[in-house]
Amino acid sequence: MFRNLVLQGNLLDTKNLSQRIVFVFWYIFCLVVCVVYSAKLTAVLAIPVYEKPIDSLEDLPNAVRNGFTPSVIGDTINEYMFKDAVDGIMKQTWRLFNHKDRSKSFVDSTSTGMRLVLQEKSVHIGPCTAKIIAVEMGEYKFHVGRGLFYPKPVGFVYPQGAPYLRPFNKVIRRLVAAGIVNKWYDVEIRKIPRKHNEENEVSSSSAISLTHLQAAFFLMFIGYLAAAMALLAERAHWALFRNERVSEK
């Protein structure tokens, strides 16, 4: 019965009807198990395994537990917006930074933080210019999170007590609400010449195709060839042995 489970030929000669019924259902069970196993194995090989992306600050705790280190531009608003937070997700994120080695979590520029992402397991938290730098360095190398955490999408600095502060704020709010600022941002990104993966690098998360399985098919062909040669040798030996017995008689 074990030979049936591994799809090996097995002749069971029985005339009992009850045993035949048991064997029929056992054969069906073995067939289903083997088909399910083969389908599962094919799915595991064909479906790429992607790492869970980090799209928001809420995803950072799990990322840190998996060995990632968050980074921001040090001694700027990017650092102090987390450092001065009283509670909430901002304060939780501040505790995730590497305070023992500031060079790992507090970089001098967005470009340095982006290069750190390529060199080790790091997550850079930066302004919208990070997307522009990612396009310049090769957008295919990065995963840009969808979550936004900056309190304001755009801002300008005015002298204290400026009489045009309120009119300017009103106009800026209208520009932001109308989506014109995002339009300008998208236009500037389109102007950047994009770098493509010309080397056709295959990452560890890419799907396995028939090209990658050529070695397995070669081994299977060699196994079938060896089995055919063994079968021919057995047939030749049996024929020779039968001729010898006939000649002796």
Rank of each mutant, 00 (worst) to 15 (best):
I54D: 02
K40D: 05
A134V: 13
K100P: 09
I47G: 05
L45Q: 12
F106R: 03
V135Q: 15
D59F: 11
R115V: 05
T76A: 00
C34F: 13
F25Y: 08
L118F: 00
L45N: 08
D59C: 11
C30G: 11
D108N: 05
A63V: 02
Q92V: 13
I21E: 11
L148K: 14
P151E: 14
T110H: 03
S105G: 11
R65V: 07
I133R: 00
S109R: 02
A134W: 12
D84Y: 06
N78Y: 14
L148Q: 14
G155S: 15
Y80V: 01
F23V: 11
V22K: 06
V123H: 00
V35D: 08
I133S: 00
R146E: 11
S111F: 08
G74Y: 05
E58D: 06
L41G: 11
S111I: 13
G88F: 05
A43W: 15
I54H: 09
M90H: 15
T42I: 03
V144Y: 05
F23N: 13
V64A: 11
G113N: 02
V86S: 15
Q119S: 02
K131F: 04
T69Q: 08
V154W: 12
P70N: 03
C128T: 02
V135L: 14
V35G: 03
V44I: 01
V107H: 01
K40T: 05
K91M: 11
G147D: 08
I54K: 01
S71M: 15
N62Q: 14
V22Y: 12
R65C: 11
C128F: 02
N62L: 10
E58S: 09
I73H: 03
P48Q: 04
